[in-house]
Amino acid sequence: MTAYARTVRGSGPGLLLAHGAGGGVEANFGPILDGLAQDHTVVAIDYPGTGATPRSDRPLELDDLSDQLVAAADAEGLDTFAIAGYSLGGLVAMRTAARHPERVTRLVLTAAYLRPDHRFRLAAEVWRDLYRSGDHATLARTLVPINFSAPALDALSAEELESVIDGAAATLPPGSAEHADLASRADVSADAPGITAPTLVISTAYDRLVEPHHHRAVAAALPNAELTEIATGHLPFIERPDEWRKLISDFLSIG
């Protein structure tokens, strides 16, 4: 098993981070990494085609991402750990908790889902296919309005909005198509009932990519979960990073 690129910061109890599709450790957790590392040994991996991890030549699978996340924890000497998963990373976190219940102490799942409904599956397939077509400008124009909340977009001038779109198109990671493909078919609905780790489900209340009904379904399916929300679209690390970090840190500090 070829190891994925790994980020390690801080000291203290273990905290693994699982990023979302089309993201990366720095892209999804960068604004809150230092804050989380104040009280934890934070270990995170970049999925294939993101950061310094080479792009995969085969479809991605949740089990492989989970194995790589646990291998990173092993390499850093972490016997037990909490996991914070964002979007697709929430499914990686749940799969890991289901496979290693004795090692996972707590879960924080932000903008997560159990399985794609038709609307989300179609959106992820468009994301995958537009990336493969090379039309990254259209892909950015498709993703930006469903990733940002309406208040965040409306606060931008027309020029600022175009800059955000151009930036999104320019920074799509090489593994975007493979990430979106996995997001379109990943399913942890059978895992959820057996996951007993205390869990905080953070609902991104204005999310139009992974809509809040998905977050509520996650919280309802997990036996030991509580639900809270944050007033953002799908990108809390951009819209409300300090509030997001505090929700994670406060929950992890319990007990």
Rank of each mutant, 00 (worst) to 15 (best):
T96Y: 09
F29D: 01
R99G: 05
V108K: 00
D79L: 11
V43E: 09
T96V: 14
A72H: 10
G23C: 04
D34H: 08
G51A: 09
G14K: 01
H40V: 00
T53E: 12
G77M: 14
D67L: 14
V42T: 06
V42Y: 05
P48A: 09
V25F: 09
P48N: 08
R106C: 12
G89K: 09
V70H: 00
I45H: 00
G51V: 08
G30D: 13
V92M: 06
D39V: 00
A44H: 14
D57E: 15
V104L: 04
G35T: 15
D67G: 15
I32D: 03
I32N: 01
R9L: 14
L62I: 02
D34W: 05
G89P: 06
S87W: 12
A27I: 11
E76Y: 13
V108N: 01
Y86E: 08
T80A: 03
G85I: 11
T105L: 02
G51F: 10
D57M: 05
Y47H: 09
G10Y: 11
L91Y: 01
L16Q: 00
V8K: 05
E26S: 03
D63E: 15
L107N: 06
G90F: 06
D46P: 13
R99M: 12
A84T: 08
L17Q: 04
V8L: 07
V104A: 04
E102M: 08
P13N: 13
L91T: 06
T41I: 13
H40C: 01
A52M: 07
A72V: 09
G49V: 02
L65T: 10
R58M: 11
T7W: 12
A84F: 10
A73C: 13
E26L: 08
D74R: 10
T80V: 03
